[in-house]
């Protein structure tokens, strides 16, 4: 994909968007707390993410990383605290409403539609950008057909970008794990998101697959200026792709800073050593 590819330009993706916007907080997480029964999964976590930035969230298993992403994308609503997106309080919105505001995500345990083809999964990612209702869908002619074809072209650009041409018509369930992760990124990208939430996108991958995924994430950031919040275990990967890291442990934020600062932080060392560092 060339940087100028018009079909891939997301809502936030003008070539200048990134340069002018860096420094404005696009996502504000304010004192967010969420518990399940007696378990305090996230407690009083705050941080900001600037437009176009890649922020990594790290921490041992059970630290509350996934729960935090779930709060941002509306799957859970925090008991206390606020999530602010581009100045708008979105704490109590439902997932489709959050998605409509330009937030896309992937899941730790892959949540693709397994019986559908790669193309159809990505077309579902275009759902919000399409308008066809029941009648137009049934007619599949004229404007309705043109819309399907136009969005198919957008999807094919993403297929090319992620280098998954060869599997585009395969049912997702039949694909190896690493490719499924890539397809799920593709579905999220199909939304042309302003904010991309990635929950362990390289989990369970081999080195080569990890490198590919890291490259895709950096390309998305460079070319579209997409804001990315990334959960990752692998410190090496985190160092490579993000300049800022937030560390959670037992639901609390224990550190924040550049990867080097965070690595030197005794609290972080202790949290990781305490649970056997990954």
């Amino acid at each position: 994909m060339s940087p100028g590819s018009p079909a891939l330009h997301g809502p936030a993706a003008g070539p200048d968007a990134k340069a002018t916007a860096v420094g404005t907080a696009q996502v504000e997480i304010r004192e967010v707390s969420k518990s399940f029964g007696g378990v305090q999964a996230v407690s009083g976590v705050s941080f900001d993410v600037a437009k176009g930035e890649i922020v990594s969230v790290i921490g041992p298993n059970g630290a509350g990383k996934t729960t935090l992403l779930n709060c941002i994308s509306g799957v859970f609503h925090p008991e206390r605290g606020r999530i602010v997106l581009e100045g708008e309080d979105v704490t109590h919105l439902r997932p489709p409403q959050i998605a409509a505001r330009g937030v896309a995500r992937t899941f730790q345990n892959i949540a693709l539609f397994r019986g559908m083809t790669v193309i159809d999964n990505l077309m579902l990612g275009r759902h919000l950008h399409m308008r066809n209702g029941v009648l137009r869908s049934m007619l599949y002619w004229g404007a309705g057909q043109r819309e399907e074809v136009a969005h198919r072209k957008v999807v094919e650009d993403i297929v090319d970008f992620l280098e998954i041409e060869a599997i585009r018509k395969r049912p997702v369930g039949s694909l190896p794990y690493g490719l499924q992760k890539r397809v799920e990124l593709g579905r999220a990208l199909a939304l042309h998101p302003k904010v991309l939430l990635l929950d362990e996108p390289m989990g369970g991958m081999n080195i080569e697959e990890k490198e590919d995924m890291a490259r895709f994430i950096l390309d998305v950031s460079d070319e579209w200026g997409t804001t990315i919040i990334l959960i990752e275990h692998d410190m090496g990967v985190v160092m490579d792709i993000s300049r800022r890291v937030v560390v959670l442990d037992l639901g609390q934020k224990i550190a924040e800073g550049t990867p080097t600062e965070v690595k030197a932080n005794p609290l972080v060392v202790k949290a990781y050593l305490g649970t056997k560092a990954t």
């Binding site: 799957v75 997932p95 489709p96 998605a99 409509a100 995500r105 949540a111 990612g125 759902h127 939304l191």
Partner: peptide, 8 residues
């Protein structure tokens, strides 16, 4: 859940 996340 996945349906809602992509805006359905």
């Amino acid at each position: 859940v996945a349906a809602e996340i992509i805006g359905v």
